[in-house]
């Protein structure tokens, strides 16, 4: 049976903690972010500006959002969006 909560793993040694099947992991360097909001246009379901400059984002998008997240990542003028993607060749 697959681990229902892959991020909660037992004591050492830890054999596996693959993300939820095919999902992504996202983190934004908010020191870098200039609140230009390009990511919000590219992937409105996953990046939202609150107030003038507070960027809220989905840190764990599902595989279905892959294209939208990639559009956002590429659109960011300051490369602030960091993505780990099961499908982009990264482990």
């Amino acid at each position: 049976m697959p681990d229902p909560n892959p991020d909660r793993i037992g004591p050492s040694p830890s054999p596996d903690f693959s993300r939820a099947a095919g999902g992504l992991r996202v983190s934004v360097d908010l020191n870098r972010c200039q609140a230009y909001a390009q990511c919000c246009y590219a992937a409105p379901d996953h990046f939202v500006l609150h107030g003038a400059e507070a960027l809220h984002y989905d840190p764990a998008p599902t595989a279905a959002a892959r294209d939208a997240i990639e559009r956002a990542r590429v659109a960011c003028p300051v490369q602030a969006i960091l993505v780990e993607d099961a499908g982009n060749g990264r482990p």
Partner: peptide, 28 residues
């Protein structure tokens, strides 16, 4: 956002940006 409910507490696992080929000894 975790306190206001917009993001689940377990959802913020950091993206791994470089292949590590590491052994993880977590919970110890």
């Amino acid at each position: 956002q975790v306190l206001t409910g917009g993001v689940a507490p377990g959802a913020t696992t950091l993206p791994n940006l470089e292949p590590l080929d590491a052994e993880w000894r977590l919970g110890s």
